[in-house]
Structure formats: C-alpha cells, structure tokens
Amino acid sequence: MKVQYKPKRNLLETIFQVEILQGMALTLRKMFSPPVTRQYPDEKPPMYPGFRGQHALVRDPVTNDSKCIGCMRCATVCPSRCIQIRYHDDERGKRFVDQYAIDVLRCVFCGYCVEVCPVGAVTMTEVFEYANYDRAAIHYDKGALLENWDNFIAQTGYDETYVNPFWRPRGIPASLLPASQRMNVPDDWTIKGQFVGTKVRQTQESDGSTHAEESNV
C-alpha cells in the first residue's frame, strides 16, 4: 500500500490554500457548538452503576447498628490488608464486633470486601469528595463508617437495600449468593449476557444453563 502523505492539489487549490481554509471553517463551526466542559464544583458528574466510592457500613434500621457479623471474610480477601476487625464472643457463642476500621489510604478500591460480604454489611457509596488534609481523618473506624452511610442515604435517598450489581461476583448463580445480593440485575450481569472467554462459555452452555436462568430470578 502506498501512503500518500501530501494529497495532490491543483493550481487553484494551491493559490487559495484550501486546507487552511478548511481548518479555519472547522474552528469557526466549533466556536458555536456547546462546550464539553463540566463546571465541576457547581456541576457534579453523573454517577454510573459500579462506582466504587467512599466506604460505609450499612446501618441496620432494626438494631441501629452495623449488620456486620464478624466473619472476617472481608479482612481475609482484602489484597491490601486495610481492614482491621476486632470482635469477642460471649459465653453463649454470640459474636460481637467491637471495632471495624478501614484505612482508606491503603485501600485499592477493588471492591472484593463488598463482593464477599455474606450479609451486605460493608458497601461502597457513590460519594467521592472526601479528600482531607489529615491522614487520620480518612482512617475510618466503625463510627465513621456508619456515619458515612448515614450521610450517603441522606444525600441520595437510597435505603439499606442499596446494592450495586457490579459488586456481585460474576458467573455465580443467584442461589449461591447471600440474600442481600440476590436481586435483579441488568441482562449483561447474568451468566448469559456476560462477556466471558470461549472456554467458560462452552462449559456454561453444557452444564450451567439452569444456572443462567436461575440468576435472573
């Protein structure tokens, strides 16, 4: 293939420098088109499902406390080890969560803790404006995390069933998910609609067809 870097022009086009005039016409046209700028502090960006913002502990309206049962799954799965949980068991074996802290400065925002939580206690809100001059202020303890949740639902009007479909592990049938994450999701989050490799697709089609229907329930 021959690349022609300089298109041929006839004499008239050379005299009037057509390319320059074309460029000028383009810029003039663009001058009257609406700008794409978003005036950020006045104009907030739209939020999309799957946004992984500030961490929060969902406040259970019944107990007025966190839903956390101290199973330690989130602390175990966390790749950056930024979740610290302290608990004690009473004599009857009931577990009490004493402290639940997330060091946001170490968090990599992978969302695994939310995916793995069996009761939907820890979640990531759509809040993203929580920068601070003080490091200690973004090391959230349990009280701060519950407060984050209160602020979030006050701002946006969600309730404690706020579940983001993006935090649900993909390819797992709904029957195996914790109750809080067993909700209707968009089609592309079911097994059928997912973008997966050929091999996964083949195994799913051979034995997982019932799962695919299940996950839509």
Binding site: T27, K30, M31, F32, S33, P35, V36, T37
Partner: peptide, 13 residues
C-alpha cells in the same frame, strides 16, 4: 474565550 470555544472549552469562567 474565543480559543476556548473554538476548542470546545469555555475559557475563563
């Protein structure tokens, strides 16, 4: 301002 709008920006605001 003019260059901003020609580049689909807003310029000083």
């Amino acid at each position: 301002k003019i260059i901003g709008h020609m580049q689909v920006r807003m310029g000083p605001m």
